Simulated scan of single mutants.
Amino acid sequence: MTLDELWFLATEAEQRAEQAYHRLTERHTEFLEFTRNYEVSRGRFRTLANRVSESGAPYGAHTIVYRPSRELLLVWHAGVDMWVLPGGGIQADETYREAAERELGEEAGVEADYEGLAIATRTAIRCGDYSTWGVLPVFQACAETTTPTLCDPDGEITDAKWFAELPENTRDREQLVKWREEKFSSRA
């Protein structure tokens, strides 16, 4: 891919992200918004820009699953060596929520009652002079079944656990702490 093609891909991805973000946020109210910035290699930039141009989301869709006891479900992602929210890539025929539900089933085997969008993160991606962005939708759901069962077809997820206190090595820990504070602040 030549540099001009990379610029075109970044522009195309940005347009798709804008459309996806507006469609997502106009359907939901009362969600948190964040911005994350990533500086990546040229190859990784191309991969992420392609994902954004296809779905609007560079990292797929995820779910914050909670129990009434305020515990959150996290899965261990061996590839990033961290606790993360269940979630992943979006297939061509899926909505963000459908992808989040499928990924929850694959990675943790937990059924949950989806309540809506919890977090919309604007994910800015840069490689030198090239930049684009995508949305990272995170839905919230109350667990209906609480015993995790791993069946990840990718083999990246090696454990799933409930946490009352989030481990330090939790990806996007600050966002999850803020979400939990806001979610449960009205429930004293």
Rank of each mutant, 00 (worst) to 15 (best):
T2H: 06
T2P: 00
D4T: 14
L6I: 14
W7A: 11
F8K: 15
T11Y: 03
E12H: 13
E12I: 02
A13E: 02
E18P: 00
E18N: 09
Y21Q: 09
Y21I: 06
R23L: 09
L24A: 02
L24Q: 03
T25V: 12
R27D: 06
H28Q: 11
T29Y: 07
E30G: 11
E30Q: 12
F31C: 04
F34Q: 01
F34R: 12
N37T: 09
Y38G: 00
V40A: 05
V40Q: 06
S41T: 15
R42Q: 13
F45N: 10
T47L: 14
L48N: 09
N50R: 15
E54T: 05
G56L: 05
G56R: 08
G56E: 06
A57M: 08
A57G: 08
P58N: 11
Y59G: 04
Y59D: 14
Y59A: 10
G60Q: 04
G60N: 05
G60I: 07
H62K: 11
H62D: 08
T63Q: 02
R70E: 15
L72R: 02
L73Y: 05
A78L: 14
V84W: 01
V84L: 01
G87E: 05
G89D: 08
I90E: 06
A92L: 04
E94G: 10
Y96I: 04
R97E: 15
A99S: 15
A100S: 11
L104R: 07
G105R: 14
E106V: 00
E106M: 05
A108Q: 05
V110H: 05
E111T: 10
A112I: 09
Y114L: 07
Y114A: 05
E115G: 09
L117R: 03
A120F: 03
A120Q: 02
T121R: 08
R122M: 01
I125P: 08
G128T: 07
S131R: 15
S131G: 13
W133Y: 15
F139V: 02
Q140V: 13
Q140R: 15
Q140D: 13
A143R: 07
E144M: 12
T145L: 02
T147F: 00
P148A: 08
P148N: 08
T149H: 13
D152Q: 06
D152N: 04
P153T: 09
D154T: 12
E156S: 07
A160C: 05
K161N: 11
F163Q: 08
F163K: 11
F163I: 06
A164R: 15
A164S: 15
A164W: 02
A164Y: 08
E165R: 13
E165S: 09
L166V: 07
N169M: 03
T170S: 09
T170P: 03
D172Y: 10
D172N: 15
R173D: 04
R173Y: 01
R173S: 04
Q175N: 10
L176Q: 06
L176S: 03
V177Y: 05
K178H: 14
W179D: 03
R180W: 01
E182P: 00
K183D: 00
S185Q: 11
S185H: 13
